[in-house]
Nucleic acid binder design. Structure first.
Lengths: 341, 341
DNA sequence: CTTAGCGGATCAAAGGTTTTCATCGAGGAG
DNA sequence: CTCCTCGATGAAAACCTTTGATCCGCTAAG
């Protein structure tokens, strides 16, 4: 017995059993065309017989590829697990990467410590590429990642110059127009807006959509909008502020479902009926929220699963050195009507 | 210029610059004691000067260690991103593993395909160990993982024999007793229970706590409990069923916050005031839910962050071949009073 | 008859680290 | 002054795979 019985089989073992050289066996595994049908079959048989699994480390060493991709979130941690949106993104990433047989290495980077660690990790060549979720202005993570010679695809537009960056964004502005037009078509005349934090471009795009649908200038917009910070509590407060400032309001477009849930609470407390007195439209179409508010929330759907899938496909192309026709892609948004508007 | 200027520095480069051999440099990096202070300093200087990063693949190849750990969830996907509990677990895992400088490879395994992939992946030696979240009866994932020669720590008790298994559980039964005793101490006499799905041991433990606190036999318990499946919708329905079966009920212990949110909706619709007519206690103390129900939910806290942290520490010990005093650990639960009871 | 070409297999090097084993030098004991 | 011991160091093997260069046996073209 030359082969020890407990050690995992190596390519050498496979080759021996198939009666070919290591190199040929390797070619079979890598689907090289230059290999005879008999050899191919013999090797495949040996592989299944032995239950052979290529040694990832050895392969990585010579190919200089790790077969792993980092998924980075820069969001503050409380937000990450209060907002179901993140769970959804993570889930979609896990699935899409698994489908490609790529390892997903998840990193939540928030503190400066985390940033240093992320830098070390990415610079250390431990992954082939990265998916980055970092929406905030002056996000350190982006500047860290940007100067690394590493293929990266961003979710949404990171702050700063977009030159040469690869990203997949949702049509936030278009969705906001959709929402606002819908409210107009219901005959609403005093429409206000609870925005996200204005250090995120997605929030700004939604605000811009709102403004353009109503042909507002900056001054007019300032009176009719309030920042809700993309949190439930922020949504409550912003709604209160708007009620005080614009008592006659009859509709509100809220830039996220989570904030909309908060806004609805405020409206209830203020005795306004939804949708009779005030029509409400959210953004995200997050089922777990939108279907459970009172009343169920009309919302703009952005397909996060699709977004992440496209991001992964994009990154895979970069890794294969394929040329990508469009570095920056935009995904459509649609309105999902329920009962709140 | 012997050293190419763009390639990442190797240990050889570090050694050359420090004027020592590769072996000595390696010893410094691995904190071996048998190295002179001068050599140590020289190597460290060279490392920082060059910005050297060890090549993970090369190291893995020789040590037969990958420096990566798999985190496996067997939960059906919709649940994973509707229930904030999972986001919390994932977050905690990411943090705890990052603190140990270990890569976290996240896998969501649900379909038979996923199981096959997980098996291939784990058997392929691509990770040093695994954290497994698989609470359901006859979970394929558990049987797959169990027969692998891989250090594994489970979250909660997996179904089946526990012999030799490493796990970190919450004191579900104790928490349920706490909750029920609390309701008794409020003078409630007709207390009912919305349970989780009875193919999860955590749900069974909570049910058992409820039963023992009220000294119920199986028959009595059957009348006073209803399965809510750990979903919000299930909570609604279970509460309806209980209201029909036990019209005079004046308190309910619900085995999860998400279900409790549903149960509260049902109670409101039925015109029962909370807590005046019916006192409600949940389980999980998930802030994002418990603080936003109407009224805010009294709940049993299980510290998931702590649980995951302990799991990671436990796994690290296994990886270092340290003997662990207790293979199976139990974490305490406490009651967090709010307004619903 | 020589040689270029070709399909297909093999050889051997390379990739970066850890670790065993041997060596070297210094200092202490006899 | 010699012999030992011991700590620090270096040389080299081992880990497993990929891949460019080489080689072999033959056919077809010159």
């Amino acid at each position: 017995m030359l082969v020890s019985n407990h050690a995992r089989p190596t390519l050498e073992d496979v080759a021996a059993r198939a009666g070919v050289s290591r190199a040929t066996a390797s070619r079979v595994l890598n689907a090289s065309p230059r290999v005879s049908p008999e050899a191919l079959e013999a090797v495949n048989a040996a592989v299944t017989a032995l239950g052979y699994q290529p040694n990832r480390a050895a392969r990585a060493l010579v190919t200089r590829r790790t077969g792993a991709v980092a998924v980075l979130f820069s969001e503050p941690e409380p937000k990450i697990f209060d907002d179901p949106h993140f769970a959804r993104l993570i889930r979609a990433g896990a699935r899409a990467l698994a489908d490609m047989d790529v390892q997903m290495v998840l990193m939540l980077v928030h503190s400066p410590d985390d940033q240093a660690r992320a830098h070390r990790f990415l610079a250390g060549g431990h992954v082939d590429g990265a998916l980055v979720f970092a929406p905030h202005r002056n996000d350190e993570l982006v500047s860290v990642v940007k100067k690394l010679p590493l293929p990266v695809v961003y979710a949404g537009k990171p702050w700063g110059s977009l030159r040469g960056m690869h990203l997949v964004d949702n049509d936030n502005e278009g969705g906001a127009v959709l929402a606002t037009e819908h409210l107009k078509s219901l005959g609403r005349r005093k429409i206000v807006h609870v925005s996200g934090p204005l250090d995120e471009l997605s929030a700004i795009d939604r605000l811009n959509g709102f403004k353009s649908a109503l042909s507002l200038d900056d001054k007019g917009a300032a009176r009719l909008t309030e920042d809700g910070g993309f949190t439930r509590e922020g949504g409550r407060k912003a709604m209160s502020a708007l009620l005080a400032r614009v008592p006659g309001l009859d509709a509100v477009f809220v830039a996220s479902d989570l904030m909309a849930a908060g806004a609805l609470e405020t409206l209830h407390e203020a005795g306004r009926r939804v949708p009779e007195d005030v029509a409400v439209v959210g953004f995200d179409d997050h089922v777990a929220i939108a279907e459970h508010t009172v009343p169920p929330l009309t919302s703009v759907r952005q397909d996060s699963d699709e977004q992440v899938k496209v991001m992964v496909e994009h990154l895979m192309k970069l890794l294969r050195d394929e040329t990508v026709k469009k570095k920056q892609q935009m995904l459509p948004t649609v309105l999902v009507p329920r009962e709140s508007a």
